[in-house]
Simulated assay, not measured.
Amino acid sequence: MSQNTLTAERESHLRSLADLLLDARRTGKTIDALPDHLVPSSMEEAYFVQDEMMAAYGDVGGYKVGAASPDAEPFFAPMPLIWMAASGSTLINPMHRLRILEGEIAFHFAKDLPARAERYTNEEIAAAISSAHVIIEVLESAYTEPGKHPRLAVSADMQFHGAFVHGPAIENWQSVDWAQESVELVVDGVIRVERTGSNPGGTDLMRLLSWVVNEGAKRTGGIRAGQWITTGSWTGNTPTTPGAEAAVRFTSSGSVKLSFAS
């Protein structure tokens, strides 16, 4: 990740984009199109917008990380603490418009991992983790039709994040063979997705955690006790509807469920 190389004029444009995205998410008046000068041209610019938005949402509850392939450089975004809930919750916020679901594995940290010059080893990272959990990430967007916008514009919008719902702690998570782990996503009693070892970023989840803890620290300042890192979708993107009830179930890792208000 590069250090900030943005000009004052460019930062001003990107702050204008952050304001537009925040307003769209708060009011539900979504964005049909962006003027060209507000479209981010790099991940550095997208991250700048994410961080401007996050400042408006308050405390950081954690980070979502993913990668296009097991060898690709990961990308990540902050998750507001106020958008987090426990399994069984009913999501009533009117911001839930798209209601797109992803089943993931997330890790909760019990110890701080402050930024430092020396890389944290996998063993040090594992020792800082209190528990692992099955979670549902709800995807939402400030854009009327996110698929019609440039990828970096969507990344800037909190990387599509809308909510985080976690299940109970996974027993003996350190012994889970993620490559053999299967998952199903169920909506209103119907299995919509069934897959095995299906995280696009790979089933070496420690690689993704290490990237946020180490390379990501240039931006985050380090991971703090009580924060989460969720490590990418195993189920793809599944849209639902008002009033829907959904669950994600992993073979040996447990399950999580949520519902949407009608």
Rank of each mutant, 00 (worst) to 15 (best):
P74C: 11
D204G: 06
A117I: 10
A55R: 14
Q3F: 13
P70S: 08
Q180G: 14
V248Y: 08
S141F: 05
V176S: 07
E245Y: 08
G197Y: 06
E145I: 13
E73H: 03
H96V: 00
T203S: 14
P168Y: 09
S198W: 00
L6A: 08
V65F: 02
G201N: 03
D157K: 06
L21Y: 03
V165I: 15
P94W: 02
R116D: 08
S262V: 03
A106E: 07
A86T: 10
Q159L: 14
E171N: 14
I125T: 12
Q159P: 03
A110R: 13
I31Q: 01
V134C: 10
R10F: 05
W83T: 12
V49R: 05
D71Y: 11
E73S: 12
N199C: 14
G103N: 08
T121F: 00
M79C: 12
Y47H: 11
R15L: 15
A169E: 11
V212F: 06
E123Q: 13
R219S: 11
R25H: 14
A110P: 03
Q3W: 11
V65D: 01
S89V: 12
G167P: 00
F48R: 11
R119E: 12
V186M: 10
N237T: 10
S130P: 06
A261M: 01
R97Y: 02
T240G: 03
P70K: 07
M95V: 11
R15Y: 10
L91I: 01
S255F: 09
R99T: 02
R119H: 13
T238E: 12
G216C: 09
S255H: 07
P242S: 06
A67Q: 02
R97S: 09
W178F: 15
Y47C: 03
T203L: 03
H108L: 15
A67G: 09
R10T: 06
P80Y: 10
P114G: 01
G88V: 01
A56V: 06
S155E: 13
I82A: 15
E194G: 04
T121P: 10
G62H: 01
D71E: 15
E140V: 02
G189F: 13
K257L: 00
T196Q: 13
L258I: 04
H166A: 12
P35Y: 03
M43L: 15
E140K: 05
R25W: 10
N172R: 14
G226R: 01
R195V: 12
G197T: 01
E140H: 07
V60L: 04
S155M: 15
L258R: 04
P242T: 04
H96L: 03
L91H: 09
S253R: 01
L91K: 03
S253E: 06
V183S: 09
V49S: 09
M43E: 14
S16R: 15
F76S: 11
E194T: 15
E181I: 04
I82P: 00
I100R: 12
A127Q: 12
S141A: 05
G254Q: 05
Q180Y: 00
R195S: 13
G222Y: 01
A110C: 11
G147S: 13
R207Q: 06
V186N: 04
A128E: 12
